[in-house]
């Protein structure tokens, strides 16, 4: 089967406390390109290897966290079908008008049982600063900062992760690539994919809903993860853990916080997933290795700190 339907995570809108500091972080440190600012003050950015107009939206307010995560769908004609399937499963579905974000078409919005907002959309303008397409060089301008290639996925925390996972699998045709479960089979963490990636979204069970654990950006290789670590120390940025590797997804990773306390990840590697692959599973006694393959132990901060 060719890749159709829900294609990938396309954008995430993050709440930040201070726009100037956040711009230094996302533009100069992560290495995103500034796209523009809308009249309501939101700032739009993109990674150098993304074709679409923007992928990261920063909204200044007095709370940190995530407003909404958007998934791009292959064709506008699929949106109404997804909306129907979502509401048949009990999700609250609404419509977001074209142009609410500059250059973006109409969106179908739904609220998940874990209290997170997601959007589906099929149209976004192409960037005039996207990857070259004719006799393409690697990039138009050499990557700066950590050199993030693309916005890749989010990890979200909430109570009923089974309910949210069910919307993604049954209404949006995602697969569960991997999960970790307690001895009584309660799922602690679920990794879902709509593509060839090991995950496009992950969910972890938590005592509070609507929590944001991290948004993640793809780097080219393990050396670039090391370079990201060099930047984190040079600019005295707040590091969570890493460089290390995940047992789950096998990604090589480092975690850190933006100036408003939202967690970011940059990572490289991980396996490829195909829809016929069996689901990989982890038992709770191996959760340390599942999350941090080298440390083989969880840390309180990774498990408990969210925005």
């Amino acid at each position: 089967m060719a890749l159709q339907g829900v294609l990938r995570p396309g954008f995430v809108q993050i709440r930040i406390l201070d726009m100037e500091e956040s711009l230094v972080h996302y533009r100069d440190r992560l290495g995103l390109d500034f796209v523009g600012k809308s009249e309501d003050g939101r700032v739009y950015l993109k990674a150098y290897d993304e074709f679409d107009r923007h992928s990261i939206i920063l909204r200044e307010t007095d709370e940190a966290g995530m407003d909404v995560m958007g998934f791009k769908v292959s064709d506008d004609s699929l949106l109404d079908d997804y909306a129907r399937r979502l509401s048949d499963l009990g999700a609250e579905v609404s419509a977001v008008e074209a142009g609410e974000q500059p250059g973006v078409g109409r969106r179908v919005r739904f609220l998940s049982p874990t209290g997170h907002q997601f959007d589906l959309y099929a149209d976004m303008e192409l960037s005039d600063n996207g990857p070259m397409t004719e006799n393409p060089d690697l990039w138009r301008e050499e990557p700066h900062g950590m050199g993030a290639l693309r916005f890749d996925h989010c990890l979200l925390y909430g109570v009923d992760i089974d309910g949210t996972a069910k919307l993604f699998t049954e209404a949006l045709d995602f697969s569960i690539s991997e999960y970790a479960a307690a001895p009584d089979d309660t799922k602690i963490a679920v990794f879902l994919t709509c593509s060839n990636k090991a995950h496009d979204i992950a969910l972890v069970r938590h005592t509070e809903d609507a929590k944001f654990h991290h948004c993640s950006f793809l780097l080219d290789n393990w050396n670039d993860v090391g370079h990201a670590a060099d930047i984190l120390t040079r600019y005295d940025m707040s590091v969570d853990i890493g460089p290390t590797r995940h047992g789950i997804t096998r990604g090589q990773t480092i975690y850190f916080f933006d100036p408003s306390g939202n967690r970011n990840e940059v990572f490289a590697g991980g396996y490829h997933y195909y829809p016929d692959n069996p689901t990989r599973t982890w038992t709770a006694d191996q959760a340390g290795k599942a999350i941090f393959y080298y440390e083989r132990a969880l840390n309180d901060r990774f498990m408990g700190v969210v925005t």
Partner: peptide, 12 residues
């Protein structure tokens, strides 16, 4: 004092 995000966002 528990150390979380160090940046005023998480409440730890």
């Amino acid at each position: 004092i528990p150390v979380g995000c160090r940046n005023g966002g998480c409440g730890a």
